[in-house]
Design a protein around this nucleic acid. Structure first.
Length: 211
DNA sequence: TAGGCCATCTGGTCCT
DNA sequence: AGGACCAGATGGCCTA
């Protein structure tokens, strides 16, 4: 198969694949070339009647072959363009995933999250932030002059920060965290502020995305 | 060496 | 008709 990283990023270097469009004598004929080395011109200059008849036959066959080849070339060109668009589309998707990774808390070992891990991590992160805000609001309503809610918010890791220093309870997850099976949205687990922190942190790292 | 992850190709389907 | 999107297939690379 022609798929290699080199060919993939060489903007469709067709010479490395089976998609090349060979330059043939038919191409010359189709442009009415009078090149001296053209088989047609050499036949025409022979003056032989039998050869002329064969030439007509050959021209017919070549004409048929040329039209088939033209269709083939058109199809291949369309495929190449579609491949190029698909490649760009996937590159855009990967760029978006990279952007998502950049706003997620970083792991200390600098392990790049896989695609699925990035999506799951982002899901958990959003959920954790939402829960933190929700609980902070609840606490804020109960004791507006308390600084508890403020300190709660400062516990949330900022994008790019060390996620595991914030979430020590999930530090063993690495790039392939084991997943809990509990419901991230269960409010009964949030009856205590301290418990909330630990629980949010844990789920933020380890809860599987439910699709 | 098996398994996971990834990039790419490809054909089908849907949409504009 | 052509482009976007999708899913399956394939092969390369890396790691345990």
């Amino acid at each position: 198969m022609c798929t290699t990283m080199e060919s993939a990023f060489s903007d469709m270097d067709s010479s490395s694949c089976d998609f090349s469009f060979p330059h043939t004598d038919d191409d010359e004929d189709s442009r009415g070339s009078m090149h001296v080395s053209s088989p047609a011109s050499s036949f025409a200059s022979s003056g032989n009647a039998q050869d002329a008849g064969e030439l007509q036959q050959k021209k017919k066959r070549r004409g048929r072959a040329r039209s088939d080849a033209a269709v083939h070339v058109v199809k291949k060109n369309r495929r190449l363009k579609a491949n190029d668009r698909e490649r760009n589309r996937m590159h855009n998707l990967n760029d978006a995933l990279d952007a998502l990774r950049s706003v997620l808390p970083a792991f200390p070992d600098d392990t790049k999250l896989t695609k699925i891990e990035t999506l799951r991590f982002a899901h958990n992160y959003i959920w954790a932030l939402s829960e933190t805000i929700r609980i902070a609001d609840q606490r804020g309503n109960k004791a507006r002059d308390s600084s508890t809610a403020v300190s709660c918010m400062t516990e949330v890791p900022s994008p790019g920060s060390d996620a595991c220093s914030w979430a020590s309870s999930a530090s063993s997850s690495g790039s392939s965290p084991s997943y809990s099976s509990s419901n991230p949205g269960s409010p009964e687990a949030m009856d205590d502020y301290g418990f909330l922190q630990a629980d949010v942190v844990y789920r933020y790292h380890s809860y599987p995305v439910i699709y």
